[in-house]
Amino acid sequence: MRKNKAMIFWFCMPALLSLVLMFVYPVCRTVLMSFFRVESVTATMADWSFYGLGNYTKIFGSTSFMTSMKNMLLIWIVGGVFTLALAMLMAVTVTSGIRGKKFFRAAIYMPNIISAVALATMWIQYIFNYDYGMLNTIVQFFGGDKIKWLGTDLKFWAMTGSFIFGSVGYYMLIYISGIEGIPQDLYEAATIDGAGKVHQFTHITLPLLKGVMKTSVTFWSINTTTFFLWTKMFSPIDTESSTIVPVIYLYDMVFGGKGITTRDAGAGAAVGVVLTLIIIAVYLITEQLFKGNDLEY
């Protein structure tokens, strides 16, 4: 038994070492850095000067950061509702026994295997383009005037819509795996009892998918807080307030931007800590909301 314990210890060592070096250390350093005035992210601790809550005061007093938080919240709520609802709808449809299930599943998931850069370029250049984009072609076909989908008023929603398109397939697969895990006997029994498809969905599928939905919400929260590439694609060269999100604000703070050489790694670290706390809070709230509702089958 003693020998087995030693063996377990030695086998765990590489993983533990990796975890400490690559995860625990950077996290601790980032948290610590957020309380110091630090210019360069790689500056030695000797170059740090204690700043208390100064970095936090700075970011929460910043118009750009607050705009970025507002944008992130909108993506989380609006994007989340649409993405998760559409994913659920498609998962239920695909698993309902329709013909061509494999084709639809692959087609809906396809945006996930295409590079996000290519996907964003497609939306910007072929769907939203003012002169020959698909949307304005449709608008003109019905006699309307061309719309500036990427103007300051609509750019945020154009970006969010594109992001939703690229995300639905992923959550659909999660839901499909959840639905396929529900025993068919339950549906058969419900059918014999006279329950329609809607009733089966609301009284069997939804309650039994609560665990999967909890996971989806957590994943969506992580996706939203790490939202980066779509903003870069929709506002190239310089960041714009209509598309800024906290990670972009952090990135600009830590690395500067075009023609900007001032950096503030301390403020960047504070943004990182705030985002982590948000994810933890969302996770805990979700846990509470779904607490005690786990059903076994």
Partner: peptide, 18 residues
């Protein structure tokens, strides 16, 4: 410079760009 004057204020540069 490349917009250094209107990029100087890190808190407002994104808003001013928009």
């Amino acid at each position: 410079s490349w917009c250094a004057g209107i990029n100087a204020n890190a808190d407002l540069k994104d808003t001013i760009k928009s």
